[in-house]
Amino acid sequence: MTQITVLSGVERRRRWSDERKLALVVAAIVPGASVAAIARDADISPSSIYRWRRELCGKLGQPTCFAAVAVHVDPPEIDHGVSDMLVIELRGATIRAAGGVSANLLMAALRELNA
């Protein structure tokens, strides 16, 4: 025999503790993590995780979306013998990315140079 549950009435809003929100945000910012997958597993929308990240990082005084960038007029000498260094020269600018840099970060930098 199959059991069916019928829910009627006004949809109930769930309340999430700051600890649970923080756990989901931390899981989502791990390199290689998928916000969509984490949200699906928690049965929430991905936009909730992004909103919680902004709110929680704002409370902690942490930046939410930008990485530190150093601009050098005369860049320091770099050991060109390093094999895991990507160098991109475009429109008079040079991007040097060490091994392990995310493709998303490189794409964002290239989009800014191309703008």
Rank of each mutant, 00 (worst) to 15 (best):
V25G: 00
V30K: 14
T94A: 12
R51F: 03
V6Q: 03
L106Q: 01
D74M: 14
V35L: 09
R20V: 15
R15K: 12
L24N: 03
A109L: 11
G81V: 07
A70R: 13
L105K: 05
E89C: 09
M1L: 14
D74L: 13
V25E: 04
E11H: 04
D43H: 15
G61V: 03
A39I: 10
C65I: 00
H80Q: 09
N104P: 00
L7D: 11
Q3L: 14
T94P: 00
G99H: 07
V69I: 12
I78T: 13
E11I: 09
L56H: 00
T94Q: 08
L110Q: 05
S83P: 08
C65Q: 09
R15A: 11
F66M: 02
A67D: 13
W16M: 07
P31F: 04
E89L: 09
T2Q: 10
Y50A: 06
I49K: 00
A108F: 02
A103K: 03
R51Y: 12
V82S: 05
D79E: 05
E55W: 02
V10Q: 12
D74W: 15
V73M: 12
G9C: 13
A68W: 15
S48F: 09
A98P: 04
S83D: 13
A39R: 02
V87M: 10
S83L: 14
A27P: 01
N104G: 05
G9P: 12
I88H: 10
G92N: 04
G58A: 08
L113N: 03
A27R: 06
D79I: 02
T5F: 09
L113D: 07
R20A: 14
I44Q: 03
I88C: 13
L113E: 06
H72R: 06
R51M: 07
A23N: 08
